[in-house]
Amino acid sequence: MIQFEHVFKRYPERGEALTNISFEMKVGEMAFLTGPSGAGKSTLLRLIGLLERPTRGDIVVNGRNLATLPRDRIPYHRRDVGMIFQDHRLLPDRSVFDNVALPLVVTGLGHKEVGRRVRAALDQVGLLKRERAVPVALSGGEQQRVGIARAVVGRPPVLLADEPTGNLDPELSKEIFQLFERFQYVGVTLLIATHDLALVRSMHYRTFSLGEGRLVNDTRGW
């Protein structure tokens, strides 16, 4: 589902952020991405979502070779890749409902169907009752769950999360990870960047470790 082959990413100002990364993830696989700050975790996720292009190497996601994907196909690729950010990236002046509906609205889906799917997604993250609220009226954990609902509402086959629990207490973090596990059960491929090593160890999933832009470890889960 996700395939990296000798991928390099170089920033002109800083030098190499990712060096010779190769790995493969199967459909329905869930994996963690760890490593010290500045190791290149966010960069790797951004390459998968085509927020950036690699300097060298091939990335194939969901059967698409991202190196040769024309610009006007990028939106369609992003619809297949749900992204969750540490800072949520919600629209502060829109309701929870409107935020979650955004990925569907941009595809031109009809009103009724949008409503149905948004409520289904909000139900999954336990926020059905807060659909009229604006993001600032929600706690950090709730906002993160809105971000998750938005990422999954279009039912993408790939889900990426960049430190989704960075600001949350252990209890809430655990809840969020359990939510991710439920997506994995239905066949979503998940890659989650996190600093929360204790939680990673407790969950026994495949774990990629990055160090200074290199893939230093790839431990299989069981």
């Binding site: 927020l51 939106p75 992003r78 619809r79 990236r89 629209l91 955004l102 990925p103 595809t107 938005r150």
Partner: peptide, 8 residues
């Protein structure tokens, strides 16, 4: 954000 979620 619209670009992130796949708006053309």
């Amino acid at each position: 954000i619209m670009e992130l979620v796949g708006a053309t």
